[in-house]
């Protein structure tokens, strides 16, 4: 059995953080850091519709097709990889 890293992540895995309607939370299950944008959006939409993201109210109409995927590798300050799924931010 492979060693579990801190925060329950194995090598190559990441936490998927999602913001929907201004509510933010992590998908309980780890995801592959290199998963495609389509896969990530699909998993997140399914989770929002099912109400399985702590901190994000269930929404059957969740549509993340225009959302942006940002990937952040582990750092000394945050020692695990993260993938963030977020709305576009054009304004200043």
């Amino acid at each position: 059995m492979s060693e579990l890293y801190d925060f329950g992540l194995r090598p190559g895995e990441a936490r998927l953080n999602i913001t929907w309607n201004g509510q933010n939370g992590d998908l309980p299950d780890a995801v592959d850091y290199d998963a495609t944008q389509q896969q990530l959006r699909g998993w997140a939409e399914e989770a929002i519709r099912a109400g399985s993201i702590p901190g994000v109210r269930a929404d059957r109409g969740a549509d993340l097709s225009n959302f942006v995927v940002d990937r952040f590798p582990a750092t000394p300050a945050i020692p695990y990889a993260r993938v963030m799924l977020r709305p576009k931010t054009p304004f200043g």
Partner: peptide, 12 residues
């Protein structure tokens, strides 16, 4: 850089 979503739900 400061950048905000149109619906005020996110920023960078």
């Amino acid at each position: 850089h400061g950048a905000v979503a149109a619906d005020g739900s996110y920023a960078r």
